Computed example of a mutant assay.
Amino acid sequence: MVTIRDVARASGVHVSTVSRTFSAPHLVNEKTRQAVLAVAAQLGYRPNRAARALTTGRTHNLGLIVADIANPFFPPLIKAAQGHARERDYHVFVADTDEDPVLEQELIETLSKQVDGVLLCSPRLSNQTIHRLRAEVPLVIVNRRVKGLTTVLMDVGQGARAAIDHLVGLGHRRIALLTGPPGSWTSGEIRQAATDRAAEAGVPLTVVGPNEPTEQGGLAAADKIAGHSAVLCYNDLVALGLIEGLVERGLSVPGDVSVIGIDDSLPGRLNRPKLTTITMPTAAAGRMAVDLLLAAVGAGEHAPHTTVRLETSLVIRESTQRASEP
């Protein structure tokens, strides 16, 4: 069996350097790290993760908990986080809460015994519960601001303002907003930003919700936006469901109603009409969250908290056009 000493001897470095290459790669010079990894691959060396965990107290596993793995918003984030963690010699366990805060808490408590830290994406738990769980395991929150904890935010408010500006610029004066589920931080951010920007433009905004964050949620809301010429939706799934509901009622998009989603997911790009939407930097958020979580794991209970805000942008496609009303 090839040992760590064999790799060190063949690489011309100390055993501790080989150990750090696999346990704390960010502490090793990039050129040295790549040379050690090349030698290890050539010799067929594989670190014993169980033995390393006993020595270092680290599992080199991370948890990643999302609200709904079937939502196309999450897979790019999951993929980016897993790849980024793998480059740092970490594995990621992914779990889905199905929008259920009780299950979310159970998953965090279970994973806390098996991982070094947890990425919590769009959580539905109360801030008080999240702070209590933070005492059990390092946490980084994605897409929700929690005071006193490290968070990665995608600036959905910026996107909502851009969406309202776009619709007003097209001459729409009867605009509706389909919000998301109750307790959603993102939904609250969208509502506040869209309401403020519409007020600045002197255009009334009708808020319709809460709604399920799914196609069914949009479909069910189709009757509630009668009389409006444009709708901003909580996410792409709601927007696609709304478009289906409008078509079933004999209305065309964007001929009768302009529709904007949020996420820039693949279904929206494949839909006809192609969906105008707000692109969210999900992959960048996944990578940033991993880096912040590993920093927190390394710093222990004294880890400082920070908030990173990533920009969003409007992508104009086929589901919006100039308003027909004067």
Rank of each mutant, 00 (worst) to 15 (best):
L125K: 01
L293R: 02
K31L: 09
V297T: 02
M280L: 15
S112Q: 13
G159P: 09
V28G: 03
R269N: 11
H228K: 11
L178V: 05
W185E: 05
D68P: 08
N71L: 01
I4Y: 02
S19Q: 10
G202F: 06
L270C: 11
T21E: 08
G180W: 03
L64Y: 09
S19N: 10
A85T: 10
E212D: 15
T276W: 04
I65V: 15
Q105L: 08
I243Y: 06
I262G: 07
L178A: 03
V253K: 06
E104R: 09
A299N: 04
A40M: 03
S258Y: 07
G227Q: 12
P204E: 14
G209Y: 12
G250A: 05
D98Q: 13
V137L: 09
P281G: 09
Y45C: 06
R52S: 15
A198D: 03
L167V: 02
T110L: 12
M288V: 12
G261E: 11
D256K: 11
S23A: 14
T186L: 13
V142L: 13
D6M: 04
F22C: 04
E212I: 00
T186H: 06
A160Y: 08
W185T: 00
T150I: 05
T150Y: 05
R132W: 00
A295Y: 00
R272M: 13
V102H: 14
V137A: 10
P204C: 12
V308K: 13
P210E: 12
H305C: 04
E301H: 04
V168L: 10
